[in-house]
């Protein structure tokens, strides 16, 4: 674990896996998209709208996974002061927010033709919406201070507070949902046919590999930002001598 704390070590590993994950992402999209859009059969109940599922489910999985990754990174940063763990959390947050938004949007575009409404206060959709607000809070807090390190620490604590609250919120929303008898969702998840699994896994792989690829790019760029700040700092420190 401590090996990864060193930026040079971390970037060596990241650079080594970078072409592979980028390749996996491209391959998965290349095979996954045609299968999801063309060769996979339309559902006998939902028709072609079932194809939205191949975007909705992977986005939902990534949205949640990235949140846990962020919380883990934040914990490592706060406990062991691993700067790289923080950079991973920071670089993940915009993507987590994006996947959460995509999950919600695709869910809505699926819900309208199927349930006749863009939005139902279904337990899962509601929890996802709350998760979206967590991401927004994390991003807004990290960006709210003059001193970037202060923003890093504050948002790391927030990520942990959020992750502790995830089970409580899910429990509450489920309770609330069963009590208020939501619009009955006639579509059960159990009728997922085997033909749907292949495109689903491919798209899931594509999204996950995309996340890792862009994560490496973003971590590189966060590292550079830190280097730029340091260089600026030392320039300012050197200023008086230059004036003499």
């Amino acid at each position: 674990m401590h090996r990864f704390a060193n930026p040079t070590q971390f970037m060596r590993i990241a650079n080594a896996i970078y072409p592979w994950v980028a390749g996996v992402a491209i391959l998965c999209f290349l095979f996954g998209l045609p299968i999801a859009l063309i060769t996979s059969p339309a559902d006998y109940q939902q028709g072609n709208t079932v194809r939205i599922l191949y975007l909705h489910v992977p986005a939902a999985v990534l949205a949640e996974m990235i949140y846990y990754a962020m919380a883990a990174g934040s914990a490592a940063y706060l406990i062991w002061r691993h700067p790289m763990a923080n950079l991973v959390a920071k670089a993940s947050a915009p993507m987590g927010a994006m996947f959460t938004a995509l999950c919600l949007i695709c869910g809505m575009l699926w819900g309208e033709p199927m349930w006749g409404t863009f939005w139902v206060w279904d337990a899962r959709l509601t929890s996802t919406l709350i998760m979206f607000f967590f991401y927004l809070g994390y991003l807004a807090l990290g960006d709210a201070f003059e001193d970037p390190e202060r923003g890093d620490r504050a948002s790391a604590i927030l990520a942990l507070v959020g992750v502790v609250n995830v089970p409580i919120i899910k429990f509450s929303v489920n309770w609330w949902n069963t009590l208020h008898q939501p619009a009955s969702l006639s579509l059960t998840k159990s009728n997922m046919s085997g033909d749907m699994l292949l495109p689903l896994f491919l798209m899931m792989g594509a999204y996950a590999a995309f996340y890792v690829t862009v994560l490496i790019i973003r971590v590189r760029s966060e590292l550079l930002a830190a280097k730029i700040r340091n260089a600026r700092m030392s320039q300012i420190a050197a200023m008086p001598q230059m004036a003499e």
Binding site: A140, E146, V173, W175
Partner: peptide, 30 residues
């Protein structure tokens, strides 16, 4: 405590805290 010294205190605070209040709201109302 988290927003101390930040640029946009009040609005930011509501964004951070309100989602965490949802369980209390659910069971309080119920």
């Amino acid at each position: 405590a988290l927003v101390l010294g930040s640029r946009r205190g009040g609005v930011l605070l509501s964004l951070l805290v309100l989602p965490l209040y949802i369980p209390i709201l659910i069971f309080g109302t119920m």
